[in-house]
């Protein structure tokens, strides 16, 4: 086994292990931690594919920012894994989640099988193996030339989502007649700490 192969197999196993542990954990903080482990392993996979920039962005954006917000929310609500996590839901909704996840797995298998392993050069791989692919320069060039409009549209979409979130937060505040916009922690949410 070459070193490349070893790194690939190791990080692939860690990524899948982290993902599996994440969905099987009762404790929400432990679940988030396993998700971080999985993300770091995925970043290693990106780096190995030569897409160093994507690997770094994955860590900065997901592990460094979005998941910190998850942890923040979990801490604010003080979830400790004792909550109802869907065990009492009706059988029909439990069946639905299994069916949908099965369909998704089938879809992934179909896509991966159809694109990566078909054809002599391996489908998708041969199309974009140009010089500098995955480097900062390569991504920037594609992003600001061929994909400029999708890129700008995405940023407008994100901006409207931010504005929407602010509007909704503000509206609830008016209903509750609270006086300031600062974050306040009420005593109930800390009951479990005592």
């Amino acid at each position: 086994m070459t070193l490349d192969m070893f790194i690939f197999v190791f990080s692939a196993i860690v990524a899948v292990f982290g993902a599996t542990m994440m969905i099987s954990q009762r404790n929400p903080v432990a679940a988030v931690l396993y998700l971080i482990v999985s993300l770091v392993a995925q970043a290693v996979l990106y780096v190995q594919l030569g897409s160093v920039f994507m690997g770094a962005v994955l860590i900065i954006v997901y592990a460094g920012a979005i998941l910190v917000l998850f942890v923040f929310v979990i801490m604010m609500l003080n979830l400790r894994g004792k909550e109802d996590l869907g065990d009492n839901s009706p059988p029909i909704s439990r069946a639905t989640k299994y069916i949908i996840s099965m369909l998704m797995v089938a879809e992934f298998v179909f896509i991966v099988h159809g694109s990566v392993f078909s054809g002599p050069g391996g489908g998708m791989l041969e199309a974009e193996t140009v010089a500098g692919f995955g480097s900062v320069e390569g991504i920037a060039k594609l992003l600001f030339t061929r994909y400029l409009y999708p890129f700008e549209l995405t940023s407008i979409l994100l901006l409207s989502a931010v504005v929407g979130a602010v509007v909704m937060a503000k509206r609830r505040e008016i209903h509750e007649q609270s006086d300031s916009g600062s974050v306040s922690i009420d005593n109930d949410s800390n009951e479990g700490v005592k």
Binding site: L33, A43, F53, A56, I59, I60, G64, V71, N190
Partner: peptide, 29 residues
Amino acid sequence: LNIGILFIFAVTSLGVYGIVLAGWSSGSK
């Protein structure tokens, strides 16, 4: 690394977990 500075930002952004988890796991207000 040809993305050296991004690497630094990536690893330092993980440092916050230490503080957050310490605060959460201590069981103290």
